[in-house]
Design a protein around this nucleic acid. Structure first.
Lengths: 152, 152
DNA sequence: TGGAAGTATCTTAGTAACTAAGATACTTGC
DNA sequence: GCAAGTATCTTAGTTACTAAGATACTTCCA
């Protein structure tokens, strides 16, 4: 098959995967009774550790007012907690309550298993390639997202 | 490296990629002055061709009332048009105006180029693997999304 | 053939999550 | 010690959604 043609098909597939994945995330968030932005905030807190409201503002590309509401709602559900920063009392550090999170239903269990099953059929070399590809993809996408945000 | 450990890292990376990609999509939609759901509707119309409002309702997992608003806004921007189905006059078929779309700014140009550059460094075998992987991923994700939607 | 049931879309009222602007509380630098 | 800067929260308004139901058309069956 022609290489240019393959690249074209890959771009389309990649776009379809992105749309489908975003819709899954929204459905998963809804199944927890959370909004998509609250879910993203949780994801960022889990991945990058406890951080201030300001850091979440920048990571989520929303206003500080929105973050106040997001953290309020997560606190009300007992999924995160706010704590004053002893070094700078203007700051508020948000921390995920891992025990509470573990105790809640896991909407990701099904898809996680399905992907583990898919990966099981891959060779070590293929897994290695996929890891390198995803790392590059995250880097590119984060950079291009920042480019689209005038305030960034 | 241990295989179980690699699978664990891959799952985390995959989640990070999904979150980042969703945020890019939202930023791209906003740069067109569109909402994320309008963008998804356009994407579905482009990928699967002209279809009825009802089909969009099912594909987007939103209510029929929401689709009315989404199509209204896209029509107002001149990006799509409504047409009566001659065979069933209850139906309204929505079609993308490709010329209008091509004439608008392309927020995807930058990321598209970045990925083409990434792909340029891949072998034919790697591209082939990626295509098979994405195809499987779209299939799994669509199935798992449907599972999370009670109305589906 | 005509009426009941079903289907497709749109309308309306209400809700939730966002933005923009500005208030409050604290910190830093001169 | 005061002015300017920073971090978060508050308030008012907007937007895109849902739920419920109205309208218009189609299908099925006695």
């Amino acid at each position: 098959m022609d290489r240019a043609e393959r690249l074209e098909r890959l771009a389309l597939l990649s776009e379809a995967d992105a749309t489908q994945t975003a819709m899954f995330q929204q459905a998963a968030a809804a199944s927890y009774g959370l909004g998509i932005t609250e879910m993203r905030a949780l994801s960022i807190l889990l991945r990058n550790g406890p951080q201030t409201a300001g850091a979440l503002t920048r990571a989520l590309h929303v206003t500080s007012g929105a973050v106040t509401g997001i953290v309020d709602r997560l606190v009300r559900r007992g999924l995160v907690s706010r704590a004053a920063d002893p070094d700078d009392r203007r700051k508020v550090v948000v921390t995920v309550d891992l025990a509470a999170l573990a105790a809640s239903e896991n909407a990701y269990a099904g898809i996680g298993e399905a992907f583990q099953e898919l990966y099981a059929g891959y060779t070590d070399a293929e897994l290695d390639f996929l890891e390198r590809h995803l790392t590059a993809s995250v880097e590119i996408t984060a950079r291009e997202t920042a480019r689209l945000h005038p305030r960034a």
